[in-house]
């Protein structure tokens, strides 16, 4: 699919690139990071204008994120009805609220596989839209400047960069899943231990 999209970007330029980033932010598997690196390389080769490509790409990605945030926001009642009584869900929501900014920022460019779930959770978590947009725009700008910049720097060798970054992103995702498992294990164990201690101490 990526190959077809690359051909279309060199034919139709920045507006189509922005449209693909918009779709990527909504969860369509367009390989958005690959496209950003490639767009950087195409800019270096004179196929795309880097300023308009970066600005339109940023707009496309941010609008897509805003819509997925909206989906999470309007699905909030439905999720609350199903999971609202679950302590695990309430814990997850309060943990997200305390680290929301960092989670939104990092999932834009470092753990991109978690960007869409983060948008949906953010929409349903009660975080202010303005706050979400601030972290989102910052993260998406970092993504476009960092990845697009590497593509620009390496030019026709951009596929090497793309290959490395795609796999590195997967590695980071693995670290996050493993870390999440270990953290959850310790947290549950600590909670269970404190609950059993409470049961042992008689009320005065």
């Amino acid at each position: 699919m990526s190959d077809f999209l690359l051909t279309q970007i060199i034919n139709y330029g920045a507006p189509l690139f922005a449209a693909f980033l918009f779709l990527g932010a909504l969860g369509v598997p367009v390989g958005a990071s690959v496209l950003v690196i490639a767009a950087g390389a195409f800019s270096q080769q004179g196929i795309l204008d880097w300023v308009s490509t970066a600005i339109l790409g940023l707009i496309g990605a941010v609008i897509g994120d805003a819509i997925s945030f909206g989906i999470g926001f309007y699905a909030k009642d439905w999720v609350d009805r199903r999971l609202g009584r679950s302590p695990a869900w309430r814990n997850a929501r309060s943990s997200f609220d305390s680290h929301a900014g960092l989670a939104i920022y990092l999932t834009r460019f470092l753990i991109t596989a978690l960007a869409l779930p983060t948008n949906l959770i953010a929409g349903g978590s009660g975080i202010k839209f303005r706050r979400f947009m601030a972290y989102d725009s910052l993260g998406e700008s970092t993504w476009i400047i960092l990845y697009g910049g590497l593509g620009y720097l390496f030019g026709s060798q951009w596929e090497l960069v793309s290959n490395f970054i795609s796999n590195f992103g997967g590695l980071i995702l693995g670290v996050v899943v493993l870390g999440g498992g270990v953290w959850l294990g310790f947290r549950r164990r600590r909670n269970s231990e404190s609950e059993s201690m409470d049961e042992k101490i008689p009320e005065t």
Binding site: L160, V161, N163, F164, S166, N167, F168, G170, L171, L173, G174, V175, V176, V177, L178, G179, G180, G181, V182, L184, G185, R188
Partner: peptide, 26 residues
Amino acid sequence: VVGLIIIGLMIIGFFGLRTARAFRQF
């Protein structure tokens, strides 16, 4: 929890090897 840890280790193993190979080329 055990499932998360196992899946995490599998993802790290798979992408770790691929990242190392990609890094050598890069």
